[in-house]
Design a protein around this nucleic acid. Structure first.
Lengths: 190, 190
DNA sequence: GTCTATAACTCGATAGAC
DNA sequence: GTCTATCGAGTTATAGAC
């Protein structure tokens, strides 16, 4: 995994915030300059092109997300509880008028390099696998119905999450996502 | 409903295609000029600002969509079959590397006028209501389980559709959406 | 590593002729 | 209704001093 210094990390933080709120094409190096307090030419020193910035931002995001998912799994031993926690995490994202960063990049994918698209696929796969593992665990713990198809339930859970976020954010109603996810969890639980 | 002449309609067609593929902020009046063969200054004659274009485009899209939904309901008397048809419609969208136009605008909502956001909410409500009606019909026809909560099932179906599209398009795998929707339909059917 | 200065380009939008 | 011409601002990106 790549290492970034303070300045580079602050730039990535700002880029991440802009992307989650407005999208990757909706901010410029000038915006980052104003946020971080470093000239645009210096930003090009760290990230020669905006595509480089997109890739670094996505890689760092996925790495952090991977660590977060592991931490949740370590804290919470209940499979169903893990899914509840994940859902709650994204309700918070919506309540901040934000969207999943990779979901946002996914909507702009045709203006991004292939390398970024590959990373986006990696992210969705990572999350789906984690959800599938939680479902399997819940089945063993008899808190999730053994009758559900784990593969379908996992990809469906992820899709509901992303789609629900999109719609809830449009309506500025975090509770919309909350309700959908609660229903989905009820559907899974025994 | 507003009326547009040939040129205006061609401009809206091009804007719609660009939006569904690349996003609203990813094309310029110059792109439309090249597609339609009319100068950018003439485009401003029809749509003084790009926000006006966004609004007209969204309004026309919703009106067409409303008519399409009514046509499906008229052709197909089976509630479950209607949902199958809707799912198939969006699998086709993904296979063309496109995304739901209103879903795409929803991801760029913070750079759009309030008037457009209101229309986006209207779109999602329209679609969700139509889905709910199909579920209720399926229940009466005994092809859909009477045990499902119609309100939750409808909003969940819509969310899976939008989220599934986002992920399937990233992976360039229309069958990914197809599988998720097939599983969702199986879950609903008696 | 950060700066000033600037190139080269594209953007949305307007004025005014026809 | 469509055009030419143009403005002013914004964009990514680079050269070169410190």
């Amino acid at each position: 995994m790549k290492e970034f210094n303070d300045t580079a990390n602050q730039l990535l933080d700002a880029a991440e915030r802009y992307t989650q709120m407005h999208g990757f094409n909706a901010f410029s190096y000038k915006d980052l300059q104003e946020q971080v307090g470093v000239k645009t030419s210096s930003i090009h020193y760290y990230f020669p092109t905006k595509q480089d910035l997109a890739l670094s931002m996505t890689e760092r995001y996925i790495e952090r997300f991977r660590v977060n998912l592991q931490a949740i799994a370590q804290e919470q031993s209940g499979g169903l509880k893990r899914l509840e926690y994940l859902a709650k995490l994204y309700v918070d994202v919506v309540s901040k008028q934000k969207f999943c960063m990779c979901g946002m990049l996914a909507s702009d994918m045709l203006s991004l390099s292939n390398a970024v698209t590959v990373k986006l696929c990696e992210f969705f796969q990572l999350l789906e696998d984690w959800i599938a593992e939680a479902i399997e665990l819940g089945k063993k713990q008899k808190t999730i119905k053994t009758s559900v198809n784990t593969t379908w339930a996992a990809s469906s859970f992820l899709a509901v999450l992303e789609g629900g976020m999109l719609i809830a954010r449009t309506q500025n109603r975090p509770d919309y996502l909350e309700n959908i996810m609660q229903g989905t969890l009820d559907e899974l639980s025994v």
